[in-house]
Design a protein around this nucleic acid. Structure first.
Length: 965
RNA sequence: GCGCUUGUGGUGGAAUUGGUAGACACGCCAGACUUAGGAUCUGGUGCCGCGAGGCGUGUAAGUUCGAGUCUUAUCAGGCGUACCA
């Protein structure tokens, strides 16, 4: 019988749906295993062959765990809110919900063809009210919480209010935007508005006046991880800094827990390291600096407290409020001009161009250790968002300060013995401190003590300075994190609406029982004429506090009917807790029931791209920790093990058009030279420059363009002239790039399924190489996988009937093939080395074909072994073998060592490490026997007979090394 | 700059605690069959050499009887990050 993959795959895909094969329920009698893929954003381009890579890998593991007796949760859903659908809506007027719906349908159709074991009854979509109900709910709970540093946990805001009522800010140790100080009497005297403003300083979800990444082209703000190289991640538009009132999440409160948690996770070292860098913990000191002749002081942050004696100036960030306060009248004009210049620069310009700029404020700061007056500058190299936005500059030991000092001709005082700072600064944290005066008048005495650092190592000097500073109240030891609070507002339509209305300009939460607050209809998806976000176009977007329902905007009276929030939540909101929702997706009383959460706990295996390292994977860890503090999530960390599948890249093809013409020239006829100015290769043909143009890969085969096909493709090619090479061919140039619709290098999995079947596609994607590695898609090897499946199929059949015999006892050789395979496949699945498991199947199949083995006791377990990889063919064979139930409910075969034991052991004999020949020993021969044989020259060829044997090294089953003199 | 990571045939990639480097697949070569096809099957295929043999895991050194694997230095690529004080 022939391997008819089309019929087989169709049949089983239908049957799985009909019999709900992959539906799972909590089952206390079985151990759970939770496998999760990062859910996709359903884009208009559909799936390409790169998407399923991770899905296949996790599906294999899920199926394997199921065969091992686990109750496996393997859900799938859609991250349905996002910019592309909204951009499309702006262009075409089509509602993003409709676009999204269509894209999801296409994704689903493509996914179904590949034969995944997803439990679709648990599907979630972030854009559905039943889902975002819980996104809104979590936001409200964050609004109603603050972070207690002492107990390292989120607490209800009511506790904080109670604290304020009793003792104001005394004894407070909480996460906060800025450190406020007030008494209980002051608090109790404030009106409700003032109190709620103050509480914003502490809430985990708060309205904050912050510098944001504003992207004018997209008309919205972006989070730090959504800005790449100073331009927006989506679309590549310029981004500028702007001060705006935005919803923020106090992610920074969890910085230490986010850092500590990494140590408990089975993630790749590189992702953990990326997150550690992103969190950016640094221990240092904050030191108060008084401004000379003014009643003002400011605080600087430094990790190099030991360099206090090398301070020659101070620098403030241009955005700092202090600039205005300290600037002297004489310098006012110059400072104002500088601030104006800084504001004119985009984020991108500031990142690329590191030329030294800055201006003197006219003021002087007093170094509390030396008592010296040092000038205070403003410069853009100091960032407002980190530390205190002010630094002490030590040009001798910081390269940025050094460049600044050279430019403005400021003094440079070396502090480390042997450091040469004539050409560049000495930044290393190694060496002994000098230039700290022992007793002269260059240092200030506090309570009879001077700071003395001479001869101390840098490490000791830092510790000593910290002690000194704290003991004499000049500042304090401080841990800083680079991690900033997440900006949570987006000026977009297609996102979760905030369940918030405004009374007297202060936000109020709509009652929890009224959630979800559904996204309103608008007639335009663009911002309003007054510059409000798209929700400003909604006619029915007000909150009636009497009826607790949405009301028409016309009814707003600011007494009982109030305007609702016009911003929506960012993309990461919906994806932050979706793994919890899968546990209990239809619950409308809670995000997840106590019982479901207690059973499923957290994700055991999470598979997705490493590009989410500083976005989703931080946000959802934060979100989960918050829910853990509430008791909703049962684990501190959401994703125990993480596998990052590599990207499958595409081969892009280029044809070359002579500039200003419609003539395309074969690549091999072009002259190539490197253009230093443009930093890339330039191609010319008879002196005319030729520009690369993408050509769809379907028109190219082995580097040769199908000219007739490309003429059919788009109008611009129809009339084009093609200059062919002497062989009459048009050659293209090729490059490996990320697979993308715009690069015309997308390979669609449907085409592969159509030609070879899903099982071949699954096998091939795993065979391509290690999962975590990026690699270009190349169909060249796919025939090998297809041939293998055909051979595998054929060992079960002779002519048109099943040839498997039931009663024959397998031979030792046959059992050996089987158990070798069980061992290899089991180990490889456990270690995610699928690319080496597949060759094991190929070898076993060839061996069985050679042995002409058609015995049930051998073949049946092999069907189970291959089921995770190629489920359709496994089901078909399983049924042919007479089973009524799905192969999914079979048992994973157990490996038994005894079948691998050999009668004889082949050992290599080497002299001085050089291999000479192999020799067979009876199995179980001990080392002493072998050694004795070697010493008696029983296994020694003539040419070493006269030499003295120094040593005999025996590696059982492998090697006898005879060391001779 | 810093952090992480990877270097093995024509190609993708194997190689257990250090123990016959190159499994398996693609490609290529030869052959078989053939209704001449992009089907199927068999054999060969790291490099140099007619051969015996020699050389081979980015480069250089080290440890070892023995190194792709361990140590040190160095070079090259990939990813991340970027004025974080």
């Amino acid at each position: 019988m022939e391997y008819n993959f089309r019929d087989i795959e169709k049949k089983w895909q239908q049957r799985w749906v009909l019999q709900q094969t992959y539906r799972v329920q909590e089952d206390g009698s079985r151990k759970k295993f939770y496998v999760l893929n990062m859910f996709p954003y359903p884009s208009g381009a559909g799936l390409h062959v790169g998407h399923p890579l991770g899905y296949i890998a996790s599906d294999i593991y899920a199926r394997y765990k199921r065969l091992r007796g686990y109750n496996v949760l393997n859900p799938m859903g859609y991250d349905a809110y996002g910019l592309p659908a909204e951009q499309y809506a702006i262009q075409t007027g089509q509602h993003p919900a409709i676009t999204t719906e269509g894209n999801i349908a296409r994704y689903r159709e493509q996914l179904d063809k590949i034969g995944f074991s997803f439990d679709w009854s648990r599907e979630v979509r972030t854009c559905e009210p039943g889902y975002y109900h819980w996104t809104q709910w979590a936001f409200q709970r964050m609004f109603g919480s603050f972070y207690c540093n002492a107990c390292q946990k989120a607490q209800p805001i009511e506790k904080l209010i109670e604290h304020f009522e009793k003792q104001g800010t005394a004894g407070l140790d909480v996460a906060q935007t800025e450190e406020l100080t007030f008494t209980a009497d002051e608090w109790n005297g404030w009106d409700e508005r003032r109190q709620s403003e103050v509480l914003m300083n502490y809430r985990l979800a708060y309205l904050g006046e912050t510098m944001v990444n504003w992207c004018p082209a997209l008309g919205t703000v972006l989070a730090n991880d959504e800005v790449v190289n100073g331009v927006s991640e989506r679309g590549g538009y310029p981004v500028e800094q702007k001060r705006m009132r935005q919803w923020c999440l106090r992610v920074s409160a969890y910085a230490q827990r986010l850092l500590d948690g990494l140590d408990t996770l089975e993630w790749s070292e590189s992702i953990k390291e990326t997150q550690r860098n992103w969190i950016g913990r640094s221990e240092g000191a904050e030191i108060r600096i008084a401004v000379a002749d003014q009643d003002v002081s400011f605080t600087i942050f430094t990790t190099r407290a030991d360099t206090m004696f090398g301070v020659t100036f101070f620098v403030l960030a241009p955005e700092s409020e202090l600039v205005d306060q300290v600037t002297t009248p004489e310098q006012r004009a110059a400072v104002d001009e500088y601030i104006k210049y800084v504001k004119s620069r985009t984020e991108r310009e500031r990142m690329i161009d590191h030329t030294v700029t800055g201006v003197f404020t006219g003021a002087y700061g007093i170094n509390p250790i030396t008592g010296e007056r040092c000038p205070i500058y403003v410069a853009e190299y100091v960032l407002a968002g980190y530390g205190t936005g002010a630094i002490m500059a030590v040009p001798a030991h910081d390269s940025r300060d050094y460049a600044f000092a050279k430019h403005f001709n400021l003094p440079i005082i070396p502090l480390i013995e042997g450091a040469d700072v004539s050409e560049q600064s000495y930044d290393a944290k190694e060496g002994k401190v000098m230039n700290s005066p022992m007793s002269d008048d260059k240092s200030v005495v506090y309570d009879g003590e001077r700071l003395i650092l001479n001869k101390k190592s840098i490490k000791e000097a830092i510790a000593e300075t910290k002690r000194f500073v704290e003991a004499h109240q000049l500042g304090r030891v401080k841990v800083n994190y680079r991690l900033r609070d997440a900006i949570f507002s987006r000026q977009r339509y297609w996102g979760e609406p905030f369940p918030v209305y405004y009374r007297d300009g202060m936000p109020q939460m709509i009652p929890e029982e009224c959630l979800p607050l559904e996204l309103p209809e608008v007639d335009k998806f663009l911002p309003t004429e007054t510059g409000e976000p798209p929700l400003g176009n909604a006619k029915r977007w007000a909150w009636d506090t009497k009826t607790n329902t949405v009301a028409d905007n016309a009814m707003i009276d600011n007494k009982t009917v109030f305007p609702l929030e016009l911003n929506t939540m960012p993309g990461f909101a919906g994806s932050s807790a979706y793994y919890l929702r899968y546990m209990d997706p239809h619950n409308d009383a809670a995000l997840v029931s106590e019982q479901a959460a207690a059973y499923w706990q957290n994700v055991d295996l999470y598979v997705g791209g490493s590009e989410h390292a500083t976005g989703h994977l931080i946000y959802s860890r934060f979100w989960n920790k918050f829910l853990f503090d509430l008791g909703v999530s049962k684990r501190e960390e959401p994703f125990q093990k993480l596998i990052n599948q590599g990207m499958i890249q595409g081969w892009s093809s280029f044809v070359y058009r002579l500039r200003g013409t419609n003539t395309f020239v074969s690549f091999d006829l072009l002259d190539e030279h490197y253009d230093d100015a443009k930093k890339k290769n330039v191609y010319t043909y008879q002196g005319t420059e030729a520009d690369p143009v993408y050509a769809d890969i379907s028109m190219v085969s082995a580097g040769v363009l199908d000219v007739e096909k490309i003429r059919q493709w788009t109008p611009e090619f129809r009339e084009a002239e093609f200059v062919l090479n002497p062989n009459g061919q048009y050659l293209v140039s090729q490059a490996i790039e990320k697979m993308s619709k715009s690069k015309y290098n997308v390979v669609n999995p449907d085409d592969i399924c159509e030609k070879y079947g899903a099982d071949t596609l699954r096998l091939y994607e795993m065979f391509l190489g290690p999962i975590e590695q990026s690699k270009p898609w190349d169909v060249a090897g796919i025939d090998g996988c297809f041939r293998f499946l055909k051979k595998f199929w054929n060992i079960f059949w002779s002519k048109d009937s099943l040839a498997v015999t039931d009663d024959e006892t397998p031979t030792a050789a046959e059992m050996k093939v089987l158990h070798k395979l069980i061992k290899k496949v089991t180990e490889d699945i456990e270690s995610f080395s699928y690319n080496t498991a597949i060759p094991a199947f190929m070898i076993a199949t060839n061996e069985l074909a050679q042995l002409k083995c058609q015995k049930r006791a051998v073949l049946e377990p092999i069907v189970v072994l291959i089921a995770p990889f190629a489920p359709h063919i496994a089901e078909e064979l399983w049924e042919a073998l007479g089973h009524q139930t799905s192969v999914c409910d079979a048992q994973w075969p157990e490996f038994d060592e005894k079948y691998l034991v050999e009668d004889t052991v082949k050992m290599m004999v080497a002299f001085n490490g050089k291999t000479r020949f192999s020799i067979d020993f009876p199995a179980g021969t001990d080392n002493a026997t072998v050694e004795a044989a070697a010493r008696n020259h029983e296994l020694t060829p003539k040419y070493v007979e006269d030499k003295q044997i120094v040593k005999v090294i025996i590696v059982p089953g492998r090697m006898i090394n005879i060391v001779v003199k």
